[in-house]
Design a binder for these strands. Structure first.
Lengths: 324, 324
DNA sequence: TTTAACTACTGATGCGCGTCAGTGACGCGC
DNA sequence: GCGCGTCACTGACGCGCATCAGTAGTTAAA
């Protein structure tokens, strides 16, 4: 599986087609403003095909001054089908603009985002959590032209939290708890979602949500549930479905039932959510449209146009099941 | 968030430090065999730091003839914590060899793997499913030196299936069912896992597992469960935990209980597995070691050494809970 | 007949870097 | 004084490509 053939260059193609390297370049990038007769075009294309020609990315980047690589930084892996859908949509929409998406999964021991950005020569970097000013600076000097961190994303997560709480409030709940994850990698996203919950409470004149951190294990979760019930809290928004399912299991263990004693709403609508007992009510963001918007924003930025990224409210979906 | 500063080049650093470009290159890549006095080294490093210098990836690739980019192709997203751990480990181990990992998430509308490989100039491509000869060919002419598809991975999945079945057989079960996913993207992995189950049955002289495909919904799953019980099957291996949890929920719906009527073993040990009712027994592969092995194999291939990748058996872990 | 415009190309340049083949300065032995 | 060997550095080249500034050849307008 290891091979070390010397590359076929555009010069090879030129020789094969009996034209100059310049003509090859013009044909293959079908440069606007250059008129190439169909026959020559064919000859070049055929030659390129025959020799399995692939332009050298580095050389191209060097000469053109920019690449078509867009880097998506995934902080960690809440990698459900929803995110998968998002990435797919994003990649597709970017491809329509001639851009290529690769993703970087954060890891403690691996390269930093900046290193990766530099290594692939990304001309745009996308992320879910906001980058601090220092990181943005570093990314720019690593060659990134466009850096879009949280634009619209933070508000998306906020909308999600808002939807969770709004649903519970509509159901008549007045005292709401918030289940925060212990993993610090989830912290920023959890905070965004919590903001949404707090906002919904504030708008309805309720006391702010009682946010508690707990490990995803039966004992801590059941202690937490008992405490909430004691405090008169009747409903809780969970950071995500997994924590929510953990909470449901913990409640069952100590004889509390949902939604009677404590209503629970999750987030993300993971596949197993509907199999929880009781089936978990949840909220998710349809990232389909978000992916397209993101791609437009990137393309606009790369062409120095401005573009207002925004997410239609309709993209937040409530899935009411039995736990609320 | 868009900036179009002109890049700082190594010439800038050279000027700033009062040395030649060559010296800058020697210092920054601390070239073996070149003696640079500490003072000069400092001057160069300081200048580079001060100017936020980042070598241009393309130029470097062009001059050096190779990149440090390794591309991991993820067919889709069974992205559990297990895979996350694997990627993390892989990235870390690759970084120790000076290599940078990026991942490509397959998408229908986006770029093909070959396009992405060419776009980032990857010198190695990794994947979970085996690439056909044509793809391998294309990847090579896209600049990939090393292409490692399934080496060791298929056998890992097989081992996982084997462990599922072995556990059930040890518990005394003689007729085993296999729950296959409908999603065709999971097909190849499901097949590998099934092979392991079949192998374990064959070795014990049992009839081959009864493999059935079902959608991940209550009705089909409960029909399937009923049918299995009717047939005298007493235990089932599920393709993954999510299907297993679905099956458990479906069984409960029609009054079947696990493990009494039908024992269930999942795969992957997703976080919610322990919150299922009954808590799901499962099997997972500790990909920690696999990541390191993979990295070694890549590094060896890139240096034209040979390396036999293999996975210690100990990496398959059985988690016995209440469903079996 | 000259000028202009267009067609169908090509030669040369430079992007930023790694690297080879030096070069001058200095010390040491003879 | 000469050769030799290290030390500390530098000049120049070329990687593969995009692109600018042409240049012949043809046709159309003046």
């Amino acid at each position: 599986m290891t091979r070390s053939l010397k590359r076929t260059t555009s010069a090879d193609v030129a020789r094969e087609a009996g034209v100059s390297r310049t003509t090859v370049s013009y044909v293959l990038n079908n440069r606007p403003g250059q008129v190439i007769p169909e026959e020559t075009r064919r000859r070049v294309m055929d030659a390129a095909e025959r020799l399995h020609y692939r332009p050298h990315a580095g050389a191209r980047a060097l000469a053109a001054g920019h690449t078509d690589v867009v880097l998506l930084s995934l902080a960690d892996l809440p990698m459900g089908p929803s995110l998968g859908r998002y990435v797919e949509e994003l990649a597709g929409a970017l491809a329509e603009h001639g851009l290529t998406l690769v993703t970087h999964l954060m890891s403690t021991h691996g390269r930093t985002l900046t290193d990766v950005c530099a290594a692939v020569g990304a001309s745009a970097v996308l992320g879910f959590r906001s980058f601090d000013e220092q990181t943005v600076q570093a990314l720019h000097s690593a060659g990134a032209v466009v850096v879009l961190p949280t634009t619209g994303q933070s508000s998306t997560m906020t909308m999600l939290g808002h939807a969770q709480a709004a649903h519970l409030i509509e159901r008549g709940h007045r005292r709401i708890g918030y289940l925060s994850p212990v993993e610090h990698t989830f912290a920023s996203m959890a905070e965004d979602r919590l903001h949404g919950v707090a906002d919904a409470c504030a708008r309805t004149g309720l006391t702010p949500p009682d946010s508690r951190v707990a490990a995803m294990e039966i004992d801590p979760l059941s202690r937490l549930a008992a405490r909430w019930v004691e405090q008169g809290i009747t409903a809780v928004c969970s950071y995500n479905d997994e924590y929510a399912i953990g909470l449901l299991a913990a409640m069952q263990r100590i004889g509390l039932n949902a939604p009677g004693d404590l209503a629970v709403v999750g987030a993300d609508d993971i596949p197993v959510a509907r199999f929880a007992q009781p089936a978990l009510s949840t909220v998710y963001v349809d990232l389909h449209e978000a992916g397209r918007q993101r791609a437009e924003a990137v393309a606009a930025g790369l062409h120095h146009r401005k573009f207002d990224e925004m997410l239609p409210v309709s993209s937040v979906r409530l899935v009411v099941r039995d736990s609320s």
